[in-house]
Deep mutational scan, measured.
Amino acid sequence: ENVVSAPMPGKVLRVLVRVGDRVRVGQGLLVLEAMKMENEIPSPRDGVVKRILVKEGEIDDTGQPLIELG
């Protein structure tokens, strides 16, 4: 899985990584606010952040691509 998608609709509060960062499975990639709760979205695998497809403050839909890993 190279693309991390939104598991729920919500607002992107914080992006915790930058392009080029090495990430490990379970590491937080970004924080979504949904139903007044903050949810940290973890990396599904080890890899390198290739692209960040959303910006802080954006509203996303379920299934929307958020981050691409390489």
Rank of each mutant, 00 (worst) to 15 (best):
R51V: 09
E1A: 13
G20N: 06
Q64S: 11
V3Y: 14
D46K: 06
V54S: 05
G10E: 01
R45F: 13
G57H: 05
N39Y: 15
G63K: 06
L29K: 00
P9A: 13
R24K: 13
G57S: 06
I59F: 14
G63L: 07
V12G: 00
M37E: 11
A34H: 15
G57A: 06
V48K: 05
M35R: 10
M35Q: 12
V49F: 00
L16E: 02
E38D: 06
V54C: 14
V12L: 06
L53G: 02
G10I: 06
M35H: 13
A6S: 11
V12F: 00
E33H: 08
E68M: 11
K36P: 04
N2T: 15
P42W: 08
P42V: 14
I59C: 13
V23A: 02
T62S: 10
V19T: 07
Q64V: 11
V54W: 07
V54K: 05
L66P: 01
V23R: 01
I41V: 10
G63R: 08
P42Y: 12
N39A: 12
I41Q: 01
G63P: 04
E68G: 03
D21P: 00
L29W: 02
L32Q: 05
K50D: 06
V48M: 08
L53Q: 03
A34D: 08
E56K: 10
E68Y: 11
M35F: 13
G57N: 07
I67A: 03
D60T: 15
P42G: 10
Q64E: 09
L16Q: 02
L30Y: 05
L13G: 01
K50L: 14
L29E: 00
L32A: 00
D46Q: 06
Q64W: 12
V17C: 06
G10D: 01
R14V: 07
G28W: 08
N2E: 11
L29I: 07
G28N: 08
V15N: 00
R14E: 05
V48S: 04
K50N: 08
G28I: 15
R14D: 03
L69F: 09
I59T: 10
L30K: 00
D21R: 02
V19G: 03
V23C: 04
T62H: 10
L13Q: 05
P42M: 11
V17M: 00
S43W: 03
R22Q: 11
V15M: 08
S43L: 02
L53D: 04
K55F: 12
R45D: 04
V3G: 05
R51L: 09
I67W: 01
R51D: 06
L32H: 06
A6R: 05
R51Q: 11
A34G: 10
V4K: 04
Q27I: 05
N39W: 15
K11V: 10
L29G: 00
P65H: 08
L53P: 03
V49I: 12
N2V: 14
R51H: 09
K36M: 14
E58P: 10
Q64D: 13
D21H: 05
L69D: 00
V54N: 01
G47C: 07
R22P: 09
L13S: 05
N2K: 09
V54D: 01
P65E: 06
P42C: 14
E56T: 09
M35G: 14
G10M: 05
E68N: 04
L30R: 00
M37D: 07
K11N: 05
L32M: 14
M35V: 07
L16W: 01
P65L: 07
Q27G: 03
V25Q: 13
D61Q: 14
Q27M: 07
R24G: 07
M35N: 15
R22F: 14
G10S: 06
R22Y: 13
R45Y: 13
Q27A: 04
N2L: 14
P42Q: 13
V19P: 08
N2S: 13
G47V: 02
R51A: 12
E40W: 12
E58Y: 13
P44T: 07
V17D: 01
G28T: 15
L29D: 01
Q27D: 09
K55S: 12
D60Y: 15
V49S: 01
D21A: 06
Q27Y: 04
P44K: 05
K50Y: 12
V54E: 01
K36N: 15
L30W: 02
A6P: 04
A34C: 14
V48G: 01
V4Q: 03
P7W: 07
L69A: 01
E38L: 12
K11L: 09
V12K: 00
V23N: 01
P7Y: 06
M8Q: 07
M8A: 08
S5R: 15
N39T: 14
G57R: 04
L66D: 00
D46T: 07
S43Q: 00
E56S: 09
G70V: 14
V3A: 06
V25I: 12
S5M: 13
E33M: 12
G70Q: 13
V54G: 03
D46S: 09
K50F: 11
P7L: 07
R24Y: 11
V25R: 14
R14I: 08
P42D: 05
L16M: 09
I67E: 00
D60G: 15
V17Y: 00
R22W: 14
N39I: 15
P7C: 09
M35A: 12
V12Y: 01
G26A: 04
V4Y: 04
V19Q: 07
S5W: 14
S43R: 02
V12E: 00
V48C: 12
V31L: 08
R45I: 15
L53R: 04
R45C: 13
R14H: 07
V23Q: 01
V49N: 00
I52T: 01
V48F: 13
P65M: 08
N39S: 11
V3L: 12
D60W: 15
V4T: 03
V3K: 06
K50R: 11
E56V: 14
E33G: 09
E40M: 14
G70C: 15
G47T: 03
G63V: 05
G26I: 04
E38K: 10
R45E: 05
I67T: 02
T62I: 14
K55M: 12
G47S: 04
